[in-house]
Amino acid sequence: MEKSASKQPPPTTTAEKYRNNFLREVEDNVEEGEWVKMCIQCGVCSGSCPLGSAWEHPPQELFMMIRAGQREQVLRSDSMWMCTSCYNCIVRCPRQLPITHIMHGLANYAHRLGIAPAQNPTRRFAKIFWDNIAHSGRVNELLLSIKLYFMNGFGEGIRMAYHMAGMGFAMFKTGRLDPFGLFMHKGIDNAKELQTMLTKAREIEDRRRGLGLGVAVKAD
């Protein structure tokens, strides 16, 4: 493999305009990144997105920015974090680009590099969810909800909990919510083994992409 350190440039590197080095970086490091070059700028993805208006840079524009070498603008953008995996864009793309996967890939790559927007709620939810499920192998729903409620501070959390109290009580009555689950969450048997598997999977994945272990994974 001729993959070298240059494939993993430090976050501050500026890509040269329209010179493909960022495109190549994306191809090498982003899930399904090799599809970016196939975009014909028709914009059907951007128009198909149900959350489209929330995107500063819609997918097709991100693809053009990648080709134009706008590395910082792309990776620091919160746009790809807007994707909710509805797959509208994928089914309509005339070039069959796996746009949803590329968006997640870009988000993931930016996260790994540690330059993803720190306060992006999608990113924070993803992290809370992941920590939650990876801990025991099964989602602790009550804990997840509480962590989400209090994600933006104590006062906001109380307000949120109060707002949702009616629904919580109704769920409790119908047996859909177990308050004891907060302390006595039943994870899968041998969650330790799951964590070993996940670590191994990450190693394999990183090696496949030519990433050095743990370079940016820790970045929060």
Partner: peptide
């Protein structure tokens, strides 16, 4: 042919 060019990494810019 256009598709093939894209596959080969030729960049098209409007």
């Amino acid at each position: 042919f256009y598709r093939s060019a894209q596959r080969k990494g030729i960049t098209f810019s409007k």
